[in-house]
């Protein structure tokens, strides 16, 4: 039976759900074999550092042994240091696979650990089976395409695409927590966060908005977004856009929805003047309902949307705002 090591990350000292998903994925990969987890933490009591209880919490999701690496260097993110501890632990427990969350932090640490260990790494997997070679199914193009691949190595490094599996607790299981202080070489501390600068608070966050109103190339200009903003404000919605808009300089990249922009998951997504390219829709997959406003009844977005209005958005969007005001009696 295979031995699995899972990299668990924490957010502000708490277990993050993506790591629990990775742990669930790792447990299934283990098919009954031992599951280890690595949690890194700063000095006990330091702000944002997970406690032993947090580490033990991973036990409920199937880690039999949690390794809690405590080191002052871990008070801020130091990806090479985490990777060094991960690769070293993988050797010590003779892991057949090292699994982690398919987040920016998870992917960069796993890539670094795989490189140190001289092993291949498959990012953003949705399925895997071990063997020689191991088999993986992974996401490409933001999930609009899947790749089936063989992983030829002595140890499989895989990250798990967010929401590929749901985190599932196991009844009555708990983990032994082994706290230790790793040796960290200075060279592995060259890359670390040395400062945090605060950002100006902005309006409704695109990623968390319940309603998003987006405009695409069809909006035509920076000013063309005024009616979109007006509709968004009536609905308490965030404003989004396509890449055609950001590369034209009409809006900032923080508003971009898609593969290389923000992934959104609103109850309703209103997309005006957007054709529905796969890379745009890769960011809108999480939307429960989609309303497309487009002058082209054959646009690709029509086969992703639930509702559509056909015609010129410059007339339709203000008409919807006016109708909302009328319905509200204002």
């Amino acid at each position: 039976m295979p031995t699995i090591l899972v990299l668990a990350t924490t957010a502000d000292g708490a277990v993050d759900d993506i790591s629990l998903q990775a742990l669930t994925f790792g447990r299934r990969l283990a098919t009954g074999g031992p599951v280890h987890a690595l949690v890194v933490a700063g000095e006990p009591g330091a702000e944002g550092t997970p406690a032993e209880a947090t580490a033990a919490g991973f036990g409920a999701y199937g880690a039999a042994q949690v390794h809690l690496a405590r080191h002052p260097a871990f008070e801020t993110f130091a990806p090479d240091a985490v990777a060094a501890v991960l690769a070293d632990l993988a050797g010590r427990v003779a892991a057949d696979a090292v699994v982690g969350p398919g987040t920016e932090a998870g992917n960069t640490v796993l890539a670094r650990a795989a490189a140190r260990d001289g092993q291949p790494f498959a990012a953003n997997c949705i399925a895997a089976t071990l063997g020689s070679p191991a088999q993986v199914t992974r996401q490409r193009w933001g999930g609009t395409l899947q790749e089936e691949a063989a992983l030829h190595g002595d140890r499989a490094y895989v990250s798990v695409a967010p929401h590929a599996v749901a985190a599932e607790a196991l009844d009555g299981s708990s983990a032994a927590v082994d706290a230790f202080t790793p040796d960290i070489a200075d060279a592995d501390l060259v890359v670390r966060v040395v400062d945090r600068v605060a950002a100006a608070a902005s309006g409704i966050s695109l990623a968390e908005a319940k309603v998003v109103v987006s405009g695409g190339r069809g909006v035509g200009s920076t000013d063309g977004f005024k009616p979109i903003e007006e509709l968004a404000s009536l609905l308490g919605a965030a404003v989004g856009c396509s890449r055609a808009v950001t590369i034209s300089g009409w809006r900032s990249h923080v508003d971009q929805v898609g593969q290389t922009g923000t992934k959104i998951a609103p109850n309703l997504y209103i997309a005006a003047g957007i054709s529905g390219a796969t890379q745009h829709m890769a960011g809108a997959k999480g939307a429960k309902k989609i309303l497309a406003i487009n002058k082209d009844a054959e646009a690709p977005i029509m086969s992703a949307a639930d509702y559509a209005v056909i015609g010129d958005l410059h007339q339709i969007v203000p008409a919807i705002s006016a109708e909302i005001r009328r319905a509200r009696g204002a």
Partner: peptide
């Protein structure tokens, strides 16, 4: 998509 209508 269910077409809700054409134009304003």
């Amino acid at each position: 998509a269910v077409v809700l209508g054409h134009g304003p």
